[in-house]
Nucleic acid binder design. Structure first.
Lengths: 125, 125
DNA sequence: CCGAATCCTCCTCGATACTG
DNA sequence: CAGTATCGAGGAGGATTCGG
């Protein structure tokens, strides 16, 4: 065939990246994964203290989604007061190196990006 | 100091990852970068053909943001009909390997993630 | 051909209050 | 302590139309 269609030409790139963005492109998922990674085991209100500007509602739903995706484990202790611990699954751990690479890229390039954006804004109005 | 605050404990991880998510966590940026990378040089309507389900409005604003961030170049040819070509800057190119790693992770793990999510959903209701 | 302008809808996120 | 319930605001994204 002379002309390959886009599904043929970008079979690998297009769909997976859209899946990833759709699932982890929300405001908090990657950060929550990083913090759980850093702590090893962490409780709900610990997460709130470490990430002060997340609301209970959003933290709760973020954790629920990550658990549903199989990226974190949720362990409930049958005691009063309640105690719930979150840890990473193996799948969740496998994502950490990539998040760290993203972080490293940001440290290297984000300053330039922001400056470039400011220049662009002041040039355009 | 005995207790280090979170800004001390997560100085590297927290801020950069939030910047990255805030800028590239939108629906199309990473995909557009990948396609420009794949094509080398690409025109506006070529992008629309390659990514059929993006609207002109969103493609336009996505490109403008990427240009403002210094990730892509926009070259206008003074002719009729108009011709505009987009290419990656060096900064933009530096992001490609990371996007490819994300893609690769997705290919390896996304099927499991989706299956796990379905199991979780049918288990919970 | 390359967008800008307009309008509209959905849906994420945040604040607050409350419960087991 | 670990969430849920409710409400509201804001912005991202889509469809359509128009202009240079």
């Amino acid at each position: 065939m002379k002309e390959e269609d886009n599904a043929t030409k970008y079979p690998i790139a297009i769909c997976p990246i859209r899946n990833v963005v759709a699932r982890f492109g929300d405001k908090w998922s990657l950060l929550v994964l990083l913090v759980i990674e850093g702590e090893g085991t962490v409780r709900f209100n610990e997460l709130r203290r470490i990430i002060p500007d997340i609301s209970t509602r959003v933290l709760s739903s973020t954790l629920k989604t990550l658990e549903a995706d199989g990226l974190i484990n949720r362990k409930v202790y049958a005691q009063v007061p309640p105690k719930v611990e979150y840890t990473l699954t193996e799948t969740g751990k496998s994502l950490i190196p990539i998040i760290n690479q993203l972080t490293q890229w940001a440290q290297t390039n984000m300053e330039n990006v922001i400056r470039h954006r400011e220049d662009y804004a002041s040039a355009q109005g």
